[in-house]
Design a protein around this nucleic acid. Structure first.
Lengths: 127, 127
DNA sequence: TCATTACTACGAATTTTATCGTAATAAATA
DNA sequence: TATTTATTACGATAAAATTCGTAGTAATGA
């Protein structure tokens, strides 16, 4: 168990998305991505990144003038954390219900369905 | 499509949980449930319910002195809304990935796995 | 070199969410 | 009836999250 499970806020998640996708990015790059989707000022993005840095959600290389940010938490861990929380607060602790929801209401591709089938098989006959 | 998709906050979700479970409840009942889990004052619960009422998240019968609150949004709709959002913001739009996460990291019961299998079958060979 | 541009830092304002105290009143009860 | 208790309404405060302006400075390039 690493130190603490710091829950990213909504805005922080948006930034993490960008960083996960790109691997690393400057404030400018992050801002450009966010600006595609929503109205947001440059310094707002900067400030958020700075706060995330203080919280340990991102790391950064500030050896050059233009700092380069990287995610300090993995997508997987964050997914696990938030999915777990959602199972508890919205699905009465039942992961199966969440799966049913996700499968039933959203379109998964053939490939994904096959992948799920394989996982399901391995879960059904453990060894 | 009903009017708006008002996203409940964290605290509002906790209250909805109680209302969904009980069907309806007074402020006192809601407060008692919440108090089992966290420190919270009576008037805080009351205020939250009042705010939720203004937002249309709950309805209430205030014909008697003690008001009775009911959820005005269904668990299913709320689940759908929040799961959809999570798929977008955390799973790059891929419901399959969310399912993999939920199945892989959390223990689903045998019954749930079977149920998922049936759904999966129906998805794989559409009528 | 001087002016312009690109950054970061920082503080402040705003917005959203959560929390609670107090007052008013209805209901219960002594 | 008089007192206590239960309840709602309301406003104020606090806490958390978001947003942005301004200042300072490094880099760029005319």
């Amino acid at each position: 168990m690493s130190a603490k499970a710091l829950k990213p806020t909504e805005g922080e998640l948006e930034i993490l998305q960008v960083l996960w996708d790109k691997g690393e990015a400057t404030v400018r790059e992050v801002h450009e991505e966010l600006a595609k989707v929503k109205d947001i000022g440059y310094t707002t993005a900067l400030k958020l990144l700075q706060i995330m840095y203080e919280k340990g959600l991102v790391s950064r290389d500030d050896s050059a003038k233009t700092h380069i940010y990287k995610p300090a938490v993995t997508r997987e861990k964050t997914q696990k954390q938030l999915v777990g929380k959602m199972i508890n607060t919205l699905f009465a602790g039942s992961p199966g219900q969440l799966v049913m929801q996700a499968l039933g209401n959203h379109n998964a591709s053939k490939e994904e369905l096959d992948e799920i089938q394989r996982l399901l098989d391995s879960l059904k006959k453990p060894s």
